[in-house]
Write a protein that binds this DNA or RNA. Sequence first.
DNA 1: TTTAACTATTCAACAATTTAACTATAAGTA
DNA 2: TACTTATAGTTAAATTGTTGAATAGTTAAA
Lengths: 150, 150
Amino acid sequence: MSNDNIQQLVNRYVDVSFSVTKKAEALITEQLGSKLTHDQLYIIRYINRVGSCTSTALAEEFEVKKSAITAIINRLWEKGFIQRTRDEKDRRVVYLTLTEKGEELFWRIDKRIQQLVEELISQFEPSEIEQFIETYEKLNHALVEQKNKK
Amino acid sequence: MSNDNIQQLVNRYVDVSFSVTKKAEALITEQLGSKLTHDQLYIIRYINRVGSCTSTALAEEFEVKKSAITAIINRLWEKGFIQRTRDEKDRRVVYLTLTEKGEELFWRIDKRIQQLVEELISQFEPSEIEQFIETYEKLNHALVEQKNKK
DNA sequence: TTTAACTATTCAACAATTTAACTATAAGTA
DNA sequence: TACTTATAGTTAAATTGTTGAATAGTTAAA
């Protein structure tokens, strides 16, 4: 593939992924109200999925330092969305879980997001969506490989 | 499409787009050194493409307030990567352009990014990439439509 | 000419991030 | 057992990006 072609592909990809992310987050902002930031929603979404996890796990998952996680968790804890529970066996470890209030909030926001997505994807063939996400996941895998090579 | 299917698609999409963005930015971080942040690179990339633009245009393009742009531009200006030029006809307007130093920096980083992408996309069929970006652009378009509806 | 609109900036407040230092706990070793 | 090293999490200072409100200067409209 020629340099010009690659240049064009990079530009198209960067533009469209940037634009889509921005627009999707703008849509979701209305659902978040002033209760959560996007990063906070991502964290809550993750904890909801795994049920319970540690700061270290979150830091690895989100590829940031642990102190960054502490800061976000503190804010969510102050708002009453997250609980901290010390492990009795290993007292260094703190397990993070959603409170009932946190679960309820996430459930409500997630439902609204699904409604928005439903409107959106009705315009696509299911096979096109499937192919799109598959290629995206393949790209993700290729990035992991490239990272491991170094 | 059933609710469960939509739920699954949303989850897969959010996960993979988040993951790819993180990993791509991690790869690029090494190229940026301590000279630029990612947002600063996005801004420089845009100005490089259009040649010259205003704060207002950047604020619209990046969907943030003008004061956020002023802050970023100030930092890039302090580092000597960006020039400000007042419009003589309409003295409210300030045109932003890259300095020679800014152009040279962007050129160097962009070249490295292309090399990285080249390694990556060699693993894909050109038609698969083309289809992927087309669907992505279609999604972007659908988001614009949905936004305008409101 | 006065009023309204627009362009950009400043400032205060907050969120997310990194780096470095620190506390507490657990595990390994001599 | 006592010393050392490693791990989990937090704290504090500094930087960056963000919003919202206020402001200065300029242009357009009434």
